[in-house]
Amino acid sequence: MAHGLRPVGLDFTETAPLRLVFAAHAAAAPGEVYRALAAEVEAWPQWFRAVTWARPVEREGRAGREVLLRGGGRFLETVIAAEPVTRYAYRTDETNAPGLRALLEDWLLIPTGSGTIVRWTVAVDAPAPVRLALGLARPGLGHAFRGAVRSLDRRLAEARRRAG
């Protein structure tokens, strides 16, 4: 059964009881990565294996997303930062994942001479057992994230080749 989560702002990435931070390099430029994150929401399942379905939605006059994960997790989200080329962040407003009180994901795009450093921060408020379980899942989440960035980078390179 779905339940509502506490609304949080970007500062939650600094104050959350649990912060999971991952980084990976992409050869693609920050603008390409940003477009894939923010404008091509429905394509997420093509490069992020954990995502089985995603679509943009409007939430109380603001951009949002509805996302389904492998295993049945459902997340209804509100975009709280859409800064072209640099940042894309969203909070979860409603989910069927048990135990969560607040959840925010922040994708920061850092340009480099050879592409983009993609930094993904997952900020969570949940009871101690849930935080412990997520902490134990950190290696798997990191692996999934790095695989997703590699897959996205290949997808973007192929799109450049087709356009070129």
Rank of each mutant, 00 (worst) to 15 (best):
A36S: 09
R19M: 06
P17A: 13
L134A: 09
G140S: 12
G4V: 05
D106H: 03
E40R: 15
L141I: 14
R62M: 01
P45T: 03
A39E: 15
W120F: 15
P127E: 10
L103N: 04
E40N: 12
R101G: 05
F145K: 08
L141S: 07
R59F: 03
A123S: 15
R59M: 09
M1D: 09
P129Y: 12
A39M: 08
A26N: 09
R160E: 14
A2D: 11
A102Y: 03
T15Y: 00
V85E: 14
S114E: 15
V118Y: 04
P7N: 12
V21E: 14
T13W: 00
Y34V: 01
A54E: 07
V21R: 15
A28S: 15
M1F: 02
L156E: 10
A29T: 12
L108F: 03
R146Q: 13
L10F: 10
E158D: 09
Q46G: 15
L5D: 02
F22C: 00
F12D: 03
V41E: 06
A26W: 06
F12R: 01
A16S: 03
Y90M: 00
T112P: 02
T95N: 05
A81M: 11
V8T: 04
I117H: 01
W107Y: 15
E83T: 13
A27S: 14
R138M: 02
G113W: 02
F48P: 00
R131A: 04
G135P: 03
G135I: 05
P56W: 03
D125G: 00
